[in-house]
Design a protein around this nucleic acid. Structure first.
Length: 1018
RNA sequence: GCCUUGGUGGCGGAAUUGGUAGACGCGCUGGAUUCAAAAUCCAGUGUCUUUGACGUGUGGGUUCGAUUCCCACCCAAGGUACCA
């Protein structure tokens, strides 16, 4: 009986579905079922996919296969395993497709999901599909909206370092104004007393509260992508262009919803230490958060120097005037080197800095304005492409040095970024290369404040060896002491303080798109944002005629006929503008006053729905709560999370942020959502190329001819042939390489000529050299992509070799975390292995199922099987260790070795073959189920206990010692393992081969490592 | 530039604490079987100037012994970038 994988796999996939084999129980909610009650929990999660129209290629399931093996292994180990799957189904491609075709994104998304599901099912995953979530499902995004409301109703209290309800902030304001409140908020919040607060209008109060909320509406500089018609987050931009589509991105001021993730910067950093995540990923989050320790220093802007006054050669000598205190302006700068403060010879502000217009003198105005205009015109990309040219302009203004009291000229320059720190720097040319270059270019002084350092060529930035000089009270100090002292002095004078600055910016949360979560927000008569009451959620996406921005440039939701919120008392609904304006604000006595207004036109970004889905899986159908406390307290957090490293600074940072917010609100028991994370590597494609003669594009040649050509092997008779047909000699012959579909190529790299000719019209009349023999293709490793025709789909592999072969092969390719090329040819190895495995259980006549039943008490039988037991148990040990270390590739080798050995031993004994089926089941579940059933079991193999490794079967009594001379192994010698050092040395030295090696010399030293090696030094 | 990861046969890769480098598989070569092919099975397969020598990116070092540890460098991939 042959290994009929198609039949077997279909059978068991149906069985699992019908029996809900992998449904995870929340034990408290189904106590009667008994399952899971006494089992420890284990949560294995994959990053849920965006269901793209292209479907899956063999690279996609890699991580899913690994997590599935782990999940199945944990079930065998007696855990109650949660292994869910769902879809991140809001996103740009469906919307772009909708713009082109008018097809509603919900319809395309549904079709894509169905295709994904079909493909996933064929691979035999043990997902609990009863828990599936889709971010675009209103029953799901109801909770995304709910979380948004919670964030809106929260502020960050720095004193207790956690988020609190906004009502507590209001209470503080009412009691003592905002002077005593230590909150994370906008930088320009004015100071006010309790009395002033209570006097503020409702609108003013709302405006102030907005500056404290964890999600807030503010005019911010955003990354605007004109081609996509939307803003993008920093992590959605790669090299100055959009991640999707590669369109240019410019800076633009817009009123947008933002998330105050910066409040969590330090906790996001701290939390990394307890996480078992890949180091590169943790490093990239650390860099992204970008903590730097230094000082905030305030420089007083000096009154303008009267025009025409000669500043002379020494510009530190000008006279000062005094100003009324209310007119004094201050420029705050952030520096990591307060120790170099005496080296400041000028200041540089970002061109966008808000003080620039006020500071600029009449004489400099023209130049400054021209410079600002010029920098604004340059796109982000231009600025990045050109970092070498130094540009800037002098404002004409001066600031006072906090210690020397000398005037310092204030410049603007685009090397200072508006978005980092305060958008202004104190320039220390002797200690910073950028300041140095700027000073050199504009002929500004470069005072040296370092002991014994030459700065005539470049700046000196080495903190370690710094000794400060020419710096008054800092002279002679090193970096650490000088920094401390400088900060202490600044604090004493009230001119600055030590602070910690983060690169992490608040995250823009609005997108000018259709296919995303609508905000549960309307704008009242004052234009202030108001949250919908939770009982009205979900606020469903409205229907629109077209998915493009409106004629007035509003987001696509502006096209909706009905997109106004109207509420009387407890009754609220979405209505048209006409219905809203024609309705009575006074309402009717029994219904109450009408409230409402236009609904928010922006939608939420892609990362909204993915920032809590892992928690929602724990209780996915709960319509009362985002998840119940029982569910979250049972499942706690993700034990193993597998997904791509491309989400390092996006999804994985935002999700950690929301989790910490939930933690503050007492909604979750853990402040980190995933204990362990693994990044699976990318599977690249092996593209196929066929070469054709450049001068005669209808003639295609086999790869051997190209080899001969590249090696200048003119004797190859193909060249005579080519010359005969084309008249081209070897010397003026050139070839072009063109991609061919990898599906037209067989395992021996030979091209299927018929398929190729029928592929595209231009190949119809293709001629081939050689005419008769096979045409071989060239191979090259590239990213798997449609345009390179190197995409291999899992479906075709499953059809030809089966899902078990696919699963084994994907694991066998190499370490999970490494990127590696796909080459279908190698799959025959694991396919052959499965056939061999099948044969082990089918040693009967005509290949029928045959197993020797166990006579477990018969010691004699056991004796005969000792070798097989040894094979089995060393396999159990190795495979168990490998799974725990996520070294799946080596366990496939181990299985191969095991089956090769058992085959050689002609083993057909139940005591061996039954445990073998279990240990292989996580990897190749279909064949394992089938064999399990044949072994007489009626229950699925998936919960069978994992066989226990027993040392006694693998103990060796002797060892083949490698005998080496000066570290080089010459021969091996079998000796008992319990022999001690001295005896080993004697035995080895007495051996004739040793004597032959020594040729009469006396060894200087003999190293004996029992159980390992013997080395003779001579 | 900086941070991270990696570099081993024709190819994917193995060697878990420093102890026989190249497991396992692909490919290739030869053979068996077959009218033939596929499939299957058997044997071989790091390199070379083959009684031996050389071999884990390069050059040093530590060690009885180094793919493994240390120093310097080269190359590749990923992240990040005027971050004050």
């Amino acid at each position: 009986m042959n290994y009929n994988f198609n039949e077997i796999e279909a059978k068991w996939q149906k069985f699992w579905k019908e029996n809900q084999t992998f449904k995870a129980k929340n034990p408290y909610s189904s106590p009667g079922e008994g399952l899971g009650e006494n089992k420890p929990k284990f949560y294995v999660l994959d990053m849920f996919p965006y269901p793209s129209g292209a479907g899956l290629h063999v690279g996609h399931p890699l991580g899913y296969i690994a997590s599935d093996i782990y999940a199945r292994y944990k079930r065998h180990k007696g855990f109650n395993v949660l292994h869910p799957m769902g879809y991140d189904s809001f996103g740009l491609p469906a919307e772009q497709y909708a713009i082109q075709t008018g097809q509603h994104p919900a319809i395309t998304t549904e079709a894509n999901i169905n295709r994904y599901r079909e493909q996933l099912d064929k691979i035999g995953f043990s997902f609990d599909w009863s828990r599936e979530v889709r971010t675009s499902d209103p029953q799901y995004y109801k909770w995304t909206q709910w979380i948004f409301i919670q964030l809106f109703n929260s502020w960050y209290n720095k004193d207790i370092d956690k988020a609190q309800d906004i009502s507590e902030l209001i209470a503080c304001f009412e009691k003592g104004g905002n002077t005593g409140v230590n909150a994370v908020c906008d930088s320009e919040v004015p100071r006010f007393s309790a009395g002033e607060w209570n006097e503020f209008s409702d609108k003013r109060q709302q405006e102030i509260l907005l500056q404290y909320r964890l999600t807030y509406l503010a005019e911010t500089e955003v990354n605007w992508c004109p081609a996509l018609g939307t803003v993008l987050a920093n992590d959605e931009i790669v090299n100055g262009v959009s991640e999707r589509g590669g369109h240019p991105v410019i800076r633009k001021k817009m009123t947008q919803w933002s998330m105050r993730i910066s409040a969590y910067a330090q906790r996001l950093l701290n939390g990394l230490q307890q996480l078992d995540w890949p180091q590169p990923l943790k490093d990239s989050q650390t860099n992204w958060i970008g903590r730097s320790k230094g000082a905030m220093v305030r420089f007083k802007v000096l009154p303008l120097v009267p025009s025409g006054e000669d500043l002379g050669g020494d510009f530190y000598s000008s006279e000062k005037e005094t100003l009324h205190p209310s007119q004094v302006k201050w420029i705050s700068v952030f520096t990591t080197r307060p120790d170099t403060i005496f080296g400041v010879s000028f200041m540089t502000l970002a061109p966008e800095h808000e003080l620039v217009p006020q500071l600029t003198t009449a004489e400099q105005r023209v130049e400054v304005e021209a410079y600002i205009k010029a920098t604004a015109m340059r796109s982000e990309r231009d600025r990045m492409a050109d970092v070498k040219s130094i540009t800037g302009a002098f404002t004409g203004a001066y600031a006072e040095h906090p210690f020397t009291k000398k005037p310092i000229p204030i410049w603007i320059g685009d090397y200072v970024l508006a978005g980092y720190g305060t958008g202004a720097v104190m320039s220390v040319p002797c200690g910073d290369q950028r300041d140095y270059d700027f000073a050199l270019h504009f002929k500004l002084p470069i005072p040296n404040i370092f002991e014994g350092v030459d700065i005539s060529e470049e700046a000196f930035a080495d903190k370690e060896t710094t000794i400060i000089a020419n710096s008054d009270f800092l002279n002679g100090l090193g970096y650490t002491e000088a920094t401390k002292k400088a900060i202490a002095e600044l604090e004493k004078m009230g001119r600055g303080e030590g602070i910690i600055n983060y690169r992490l910016r608040d995250a823009v949360f609005s997108r000018q798109r259709y296919w995303g979560e609508p905000f549960p927000v309307y704008y009242d008569g004052d234009g202030m944002p108001q949250m919908l009451d939770e009982k009205f959620l979900p606020l469903k996406l409205p229907e629109v005629d077209k998915y493009l921005p409106t004629e007035t440039g509003e987001p696509p939701l502006g096209n909706a006929n009905e997109w106004y919120w109207m509420q009387y008392g407890d009754a609220g609904k979405v209505v048209s503008k006409e219905e809203f304006t024609s309705s009575s604000p006074e309402g009717q006595p029994e219904r109450g006053k009408r409230i409402g207004g236009p609904l928010e036109l922006n939608t939420m970004p892609g990362w909204a729905g993915s920032s809590f889905y892992f928690n929602r899986y724990m209780d996915p159908h709960n319509s009362e709560e985002v998840f119940s406390q029982e569910a979250i307290n049972y499942w706690q957090d993700v034990d193993l999370y597998i997904g791509g490293s491309e989400h390092a600074t996006g999804h994985l940072l935002y999700a950690r942020f929301w989790q910490k917010f939930f933690y503050d609100k007492g909604l979750v028991p853990k402040s980190e959502f995933a204990k362990k994370l693994i990044n699976q590597g990318m599977i690249t494609g092996t593209s196929a190329f066929v070469s054709r003669i450049s001068q005669r594009p209808d003639i295609y040649v086999s790869a051997e001819i190209i080899d001969a050509y590249n090696n200048s092997d003119t004797n190859n008779n193909a060249f005579q042939l080519i010359q005969g047909i084309t008249g081209l000699t070897f010397d003026n012959l050139t070839f072009d390489k063109i991609h061919v579909d990898v599906n037209f190529v067989n395992l021996s790299d030979e091209l299927d000529i018929t398929k190729f000719k029928n592929w595209q019209p231009e190949f119809e009349n293709a001629k081939f050299i050689p005419h008769d023999g096979p045409i071989k293709v060239l191979r090259e490793v590239e990213k798997m992509s449609k345009s390179k025709y190197n995409v291999v789909s899992p479906d075709s592999i499953c059809e030809e070799y089966g899902a078990d072969s696919l699963r084994l092969y994907e694991m066998f390719l190499g370490p999970l975390e490494q990127s590696k090329p796909w080459n279908t040819a190698g799959i025959t190895g694991v396919f052959g292995f499965l056939k061999k495995l099948w044969k082990l259980y089918h040693s009967g006549p005509d290949g029928g199922f045959h197993i020797e039943n166990s006579l477990s008490l018969d010691g004699g039988k056991r004796e005969a099987l000792a070798e097989s037991f040894k094979t089995l148990h060393k396999t159990i040990k190795k495979v168990e260790d490998d799974i725990e270390n996520f070294s799946f590739n080596t366990s496939v080798s181990t299985f191969m070795i095991c089956v090769n050995e058992l085959t050689a031993q002609k083993c057909n004994h139940r005591d061996i073959l039954e445990p073998l089926a279990i240990i292989i089941a996580p990897y190749a579940p279909h064949i394992a189920e089938e064999l399990w059933e044949k072994l007489g079991h009626t229950q699925s193999i998936s919960n069978a206990p994992f066989p226990k490794f027993e040392e006694k079967y693998v103990v060796e009594s002797s060892k083949d010692y490698p005998i080496s001379f000066n570290g080089k192994t010459r021969f091996t010698l079998k000796l008992p393992l319990d022999m001690d050092k001295t005896d080993i040395e004697k035995a080895v030295l007495a051996h004739e081969k040793t004597q032959a090696q020594l040729q009469g010399r006396t060894p200087k030293k003999v190293i004996v490592v029992p159980g390992k090696i013997v080395n003779i030094v001579g």
